[in-house]
Design a protein around this nucleic acid. Sequence first.
RNA 1: GAUCCUGUAGCUCAGCUGGUAGAGCAAUACACUUUUAAUGUAUGGGCCCUGGGUUCGAAUCCCAGCGGGAUCACCA
Length: 553
Amino acid sequence: MLPVERLQPCWCVGAGCIVHIAVLLPRRYDRDTILSFTPPGIFAAIPTKMTETLSEQEIHRRDSLQKIRAMGIEPFPAAEFPITATSKSIAASFKDDAPQQDVSLAGRVMSIRIMGKAAFAVLRDGEGDQQIYISRDDIAPGEDKAMYNDFFKKLLDLGDFIGVKGFVFRTRTGEITVHVKELTLLAKSLRPLPTPKTDEEGNVFDAFSDPELRYRMRYVDLVVNPDVKETFLKRARIFDAMRKSFQDAGYIEVDTPVLQVIPGGAAARPFETHHNALDMQFYLRIANELYLKRLIVGGFDGVFEFSRNFRNEGMDRTHNPEFTVMELYVAYKDYLWMMDYIEGVFTAVATAANGTPTATFQGKEIHFKAPFKRITMCGSIQEKTGQNVLDMDERALGELCKKHGIEVTAAMGKGKLIDELFSELVQPELIQPTFVMDFPVEMSPLCKKHREDDRLTERFELFVGGFEVANAYSELNDPIDQRERFEAQLKLMERGDDEAMFIDRDFLRALEYGMPPTSGIGIGMDRLVMLLTDNPAIQEVLLFPQMRPEKFD
RNA sequence: GAUCCUGUAGCUCAGCUGGUAGAGCAAUACACUUUUAAUGUAUGGGCCCUGGGUUCGAAUCCCAGCGGGAUCACCA
């Protein structure tokens, strides 16, 4: 940036609007030169007054852009660039004793090392990096050496997209390299990329590491940090593997409403929105459970949905306002069947992500190989406290909580108190995949009562790495029982629990038509991706995590 | 919502008890036809987050605000 005294206002008329551009000008550029860098069409799309300050490097790149045009080279050509090879395919197919292999590939220039009349550069394509070798007399074969001396050496910048044609060889230092015979500019980059470097020992220098900048400008993060790209490739593989498991089992993928009149299926605070034509309030879904069960009523035997859910709650490294849960419902099954089934799915998904069912998370090895350990909720608390919480009343439970340093409020019912004990005493130790079974009835209003003890429900949660990854039920299909459970939730709401569930009358009506016994499960996909990619923050596994709006003033 | 930490060049960071800015990489110029954190020489680049205060003097100390990070609470 340049000192304020050199700030010069310029006016530029775009299509139907006037735009004020304040450009920081170094002395060697006059006003007309600056305007020549910035085609009016760019600003025509911007309806309001804006102020733009350009750094020295950005001004230089705009200058280079003009010079490239002056040479008769189009910096943003329209034509397809035919590609016959990628960084990956070249590495896989190169043989030292084979004849020269002609290739055509394209990518972004990540580094350039010029040594007089020859140069090396690194091209980054969708699959990785490829070193290329450029010699003056190859790309500028005649008398006119401008293509090398001016275009390549001076006007090409790090970050530009180019396409090259040439042949593959191995350099003296042993690196497989493309000897370039023809070089085409495919797109100019007007901003300098961060330039992290890695030495021989793998130490990274000048890493682009500020989380705020990385999340806000994920496009830059993905370009310069290959690990980040790998995380999202794994995320895609995880989703693909899970979807394939369900498809192979014959289950049907469905879409259900995001805009709901009654936000049901979970205990959470919803986002509110407004429908203008109907002039009424809608909520963004907090879960899709009640809709998928309606589909089981309707005769599907197995349905699933990767559901983007929205919850108007805190944001931190394990919570984003929108997140993805996969929910699966299968008719004629129970939660015991679901445990057997889903642990196999987890093994397959973990293997698809990492090539092995063992993942490393924050220094701990986690084994996703089925079968997983199974414990009961009350049994695990009894192991820690010596007390059977099931036989205790609310008052005694409150005392037990206080004894273990848990704050107790009037809004907490029996189920909540037991949940607090579990979260505090047992959950942190559940590193290896563990099914926790048989939750108290008070905390599971959509779940069938246990076949042997009606104080419990047929519910399990899967814990991995110390946090909950999945939650499953033998689904409650008795409409009378369901109505009573909803009414109990209403009482909790009156006590001040602002996350208690609303009564969904249409859902009750659906159950009254009859729902077969069904087992359902919800899997927190973002958390699963965190575990399988060794990322401790949800922001690292969401391409565009929610952030406060950026100020461009 | 509470507490602590933090904001300096395109990137990563120094900058001491106050004396108006430094390094490496990136950029610019020159040299160099198999380098790889290429190398050598030279050069340019800073509203030190914003606003107020203390002071002869503030990147530095104080207050407020705005970003950001971590921990906690709620939650998945």
